[in-house]
Design a protein around this nucleic acid. Structure first.
Length: 261
DNA sequence: AGTACCACCTGACGGC
DNA sequence: TGCCGTCAGGTGGTAC
C-alpha cells in the first residue's frame, strides 16, 4: 500500500543507493509494467547516464538521468525498490532491473503489476498531464480549505482523489478521518474553518510521523487506527468499536463511537 | 461534479 | 495436504 510516506521512503532509498552511479543496463523483465515507452527506448534513455536527483509528487517518483530525461516510477499497490549486489538481489518479483557499473543493481519489485515505470521529459509536465493536485506536504492550511471546502462530495472520496490532493490513499485517509473524528461519508461542505485547520495539522503530523517510521524502521503509535484495522477491535482513542464498511469502492475502518455520520 | 462499477493483477488467506 | 473462492487496493476508463 505505497502512499505518500512509503513513496517518500522509496525516494530516500533511491537517493541513498542509486545516485551518481553509471547505469550500464536497464532490463525489463515484465513489459506490462512499462507504459508510454518501449522497453528498449527506456533502456536506451537510461544507459550510460547517471541519476543526479529525485523528486516525489504525491505517490509519484521521478529520477533525473544525465542523458536528459527522467525515470518515472509509480508503485501501485505492491511496488518496492530493492538495491544490492547484482548476483544476490533480494528481490522476489523484479519487473525492471537497473544495473550499475559497480556490480550493484536496483530492482523495481512489484508482484501485482499495478505499478508503472516510464520515461518523462520533466516531472511538471507529467504532474499536469495526470492532473494531480498539490502534494499535502507543500500546502498551507488555508490552501487545503480553499481546495476542498467548496466541493460537494464526501470527505473520504475527496481526500482520496489524486486530482484534488496527491498522496493520500485508502489507509492514510482512514487514519486522518479517525484522528479528527470525522465519518468517511461526511460532506466537505459541512466542515467549518476551525475543523479544516485541525484536519490540516493532523495530516501534517500523520504524514511526517509515518515518514519517520518508514525511514527509521520504527513502528507507528498504538493509538493510531493503522495499528487497529481489524473489525470489532477496541478503539484505542475512546474504547468504542472499530467497524469495517465499504465506502466509495474502498474498505473503510472507523470508530462507530467517535466518528459518527 | 460526484458516485458506481469494472478491469487490471496475483499473493495471501480462510474454508472445506 | 491441497484446491478454490475471496480479498486487497491505485488508477483509469465508462456510465449515469
Amino acid at each position: 500500500m505505497p502512499e505518500l510516506p512509503e513513496v517518500e521512503g522509496y525516494r530516500r532509498y533511491f537517493e541513498r543507493h542509486a545516485l551518481d552511479r553509471v547505469v550500464t543496463a536497464l532490463e525489463v523483465l515484465d513489459r506490462r509494467i512499462v507504459s508510454g515507452v518501449a522497453p528498449s527506448a527506456l533502456a536506451r534513455a537510461m544507459r550510460g547516464g547517471r541519476f543526479t536527483r529525485t523528486r516525489r509528487h504525491g505517490k509519484h517518483l521521478f529520477a533525473h538521468n544525465t542523458n536528459g530525461k527522467w525515470l518515472y516510477l509509480h508503485f501501485g499497490m505492491t511496488g518496492d525498490l530493492v538495491f544490492g549486489d547484482r548476483q544476490s538481489l533480494e528481490s522476489r518479483f523484479p519487473r525492471v532491473i537497473v544495473g550499475f557499473d559497480s556490480e550493484h543493481a536496483l530492482a523495481f519489485d512489484d508482484p501485482r503489476l499495478f505499478g508503472r515505470a516510464g520515461l518523462v521529459g520533466n516531472p511538471d509536465e507529467e504532474i499536469a498531464r495526470r492532473r494531480l493536485g498539490p502534494d499535502p506536504l507543500a500546502l498551507s492550511a488555508a490552501e487545503l480549505e480553499r481546495l476542498l471546502s467548496n466541493k460537494r462530495g464526501a470527505m473520504k472520496s475527496l481526500l482520496m482523489n489524486q486530482t484534488n490532493l496527491a498522496g493520500l490513499g485508502n489507509l492514510y485517509v482512514d487514519e486522518l478521518l479517525f484522528q479528527t473524528g470525522i465519518h468517511p461519508r461526511t460532506l466537505a461542505s459541512s466542515i467549518d474553518s476551525r475543523t479544516w485547520r485541525t484536519i490540516y495539522s493532523a495530516m501534517q503530523k500523520i504524514l511526517r510521523r509515518a515518514i519517520d517510521a518508514q525511514t527509521s524502521g520504527a513502528s507507528l503509535p498504538r493509538s493510531w487506527l493503522l495499528e487497529h484495522r481489524v473489525e470489532g477491535d477496541a478503539c484505542p482513542r475512546c474504547g468504542g468499536t472499530i467497524a469495517r464498511e465499504t465506502h466509495f469502492g474502498r474498505t473503510s475502518y472507523f470508530c462507530t463511537r467517535h466518528q459518527r455520520p
